[in-house]
Every structure is written in C-alpha cells, then in structure tokens.
C-alpha cells in the first residue's frame, strides 16, 4: 500500500492533495490522448502508409510507386480544395458555437429559473446527441435558399454543415462556461455583492475575468475534437478532404491500392494539424494551474 498509515490510525493524516482547478471543465481527455503520442509517431504513420501497398499487394500489377505517384498528383487538389474547407468549417463552427455557447452557458447560471432550466435542457440535449444525427436534421430541415427582399441567397451545403456541427459545440462550450463560473469561490460573489455590485457587474467585472483563462484549455480541446470530426460532413456530400479523396481515387480507376495512401494521407494531415494543438492545450493547462 502506498500510504500504510491511512485507515489504521487515529492520528490526522494528510491525504494526497489532488489539485483540479476547474473540476470537469478541465476534462481534456481527447487532448491528453492525442498529446501522448510522440512526435515521431507521425513519421511511423507516414512510413506505414507508404509501405502498405507495397507489402500487401506486391503481386498486383498496380505498384506502390504508381499509387504514391497518383497521390502526389492529386495532393495539391485534395489539400487546397478539401482540407482547406475542413479548416474553414472548423473555424466557422467554432466561432458560431462559441458565441452561442457563451450565451447558453450564461443562461444556465441565470437567476431566472425558466431561463436557467431551458438553457440547461438545451445544453444537455445537444451535448448528448449523436453529431451525425444533428447534421442530418440540420441538412434536411434547413431551407436551400433564403429570400431577403428580392434577392435569393443559395445556402451551400458546407454552410449548413457548419450550423449542424455548431450545435454540439455550442452545448459543450455552454458546459465549459457554466463549469468555469461555478469554479470561482462563492466568496467572490459575496464580496462583490456586499460592495453593492449588481449581478451583471459581479459577473463581468469580477467572475468572468477570473475564469476566462480556465476556459481556454477545454475550449481548445473541443476545437481539436471538432476538427477531427469535420470529415463527418463528407457523408452529407460536402466536398471536403474525404469526399475529394474518394473522387480522386475514382478518377484513378478505383485501384484498391490507392485506399491506404489517400486515407493515410488524410489521417496524417489531421494528426499534423491537431497534435500541436493538443500539446499546446496541455501546456497551457499546466501553466494556468500553477498561476492559480
């Protein structure tokens, strides 16, 4: 046993001190998992992707060299038209999700019971729904075009996907905001109240400035999760990296040898983008924990 004194003594025992600055807010499971890879694993992944066609399909007449050559030719297209769209979707989703999530999170701590209950319900609903189902609902429920005045605006599929993905992000940001606010000691509220601050003033001048920093690591954690999830929208026909990779493979006569290089490349590019974010998230979290 690690602490042999515990449990069989009447003496006061100092228990190991677990410091968790913001409770569930700091639950960075995804970032922790991702950041645990060594940077070298990227290299292994690439190597594996290159060797696979060579090993498995050596007897075929379509060689690894040909497959990689095809990937090389399609790479600029897949990245510039596909992956860039994944990033655009991730930025916009995060922007909308954050704004809506902050409002919803503040709603959750509202002194008005009806507002708090509704915000809580909306948060739980979208936090616990499958993303793909939300995406389908938004895709099908949203109009294809909007008429403002006499102009008709076509709504592109990818923009609808942004709204679909923004729903679960909103709900999770809402939880981050609520958790961070509730992690501030009640003494801060009381001190501000006894100095005649209004609730709004207490929130904006005293509470939020204190928990802003605590929200950044979990916020970044959700950004990484979101980015990894953007290929979901390929199922809805949005022309992002996975959709374009499939189209490219079709253009190359659908050789099965193409699968691993193309999807392997998608894997690598997502990893290369999200891995530094995860590492940085954990570094920030450590730094803020020390400041606190």
């Amino acid at each position: 046993m690690k602490y042999p004194l515990q449990g069989n003594t009447d003496l006061a025992v100092l228990k190991p001190f677990n410091y968790s600055p913001a409770g569930s807010v700091q639950d960075l499971q995804f970032s922790r998992w991702l950041a645990e890879f060594s940077p070298r694993s990227l290299l292994w992944l690439a190597l594996l992707a290159c060797l696979w066609p060579g090993i498995v399909l050596a007897q075929s007449n379509y060689t690894m060299a040909q497959a990689l050559d095809a990937l090389w030719r399609w790479l600029p297209f897949v990245v510039s038209k596909g992956f860039v769209l994944n990033l655009v979707v991730s930025f916009l989703t995060m922007l909308i999700g954050t704004i809506a999530g902050v409002i919803l999170g503040l709603g959750q701590i509202s002194p008005i019971r009806a507002v708090a209950r509704t915000s809580w319900f909306v948060t739980q609903l979208f936090r616990n729904s499958p993303w793909l189902v939300l995406l389908f609902i938004v895709m099908l429920a949203f109009p294809f075009e909007i008429t403002i005045g006499s102009t008709v605006y076509q709504i592109p599929d990818w923009l609808k996907a942004v709204f679909g993905l923004a729903l679960p992000i909103m709900a999770n940001i809402s939880e981050i905001v609520r958790g961070a606010i509730q992690s501030v000691p009640t003494g801060q509220w009381e001190a501000a109240e006894s100095l005649a601050y209004t609730r709004q003033q207490t929130l904006w001048l005293v509470i939020l400035p204190q928990c802003f920093k605590r929200m950044i690591p979990p916020w970044m954690n959700w950004y990484a999760i979101l980015t990894m999830a953007t290929p979901l929208i390929s199922l809805l026909g949005v022309e992002e990296i996975v959709t374009l990779s499939r189209q490219a493979m079709e253009a190359e006569d659908n050789h099965p040898e193409l699968l691993v290089p193309f999807f392997g490349f998608a894997l690598i590019i997502f990893f290369a983008y999200c891995y530094p974010i995860a590492r940085y998230t954990l570094r920030l979290e450590k730094r803020f924990a020390i400041i606190q």
Partner: peptide, 16 residues
C-alpha cells in the same frame, strides 16, 4: 449595501 461594509474571514479580494 452602500451603507453597510463587510469584511470576510477569507478576505475575498479580487485576485485579478
């Protein structure tokens, strides 16, 4: 509360 000031056991200063 403008008329009644209060000081707490845990100080409760605004840390930021």
């Amino acid at each position: 509360r403008k008329k009644v000031g209060m000081v707490f056991q845990q100080y409760n200063l605004f840390p930021h």
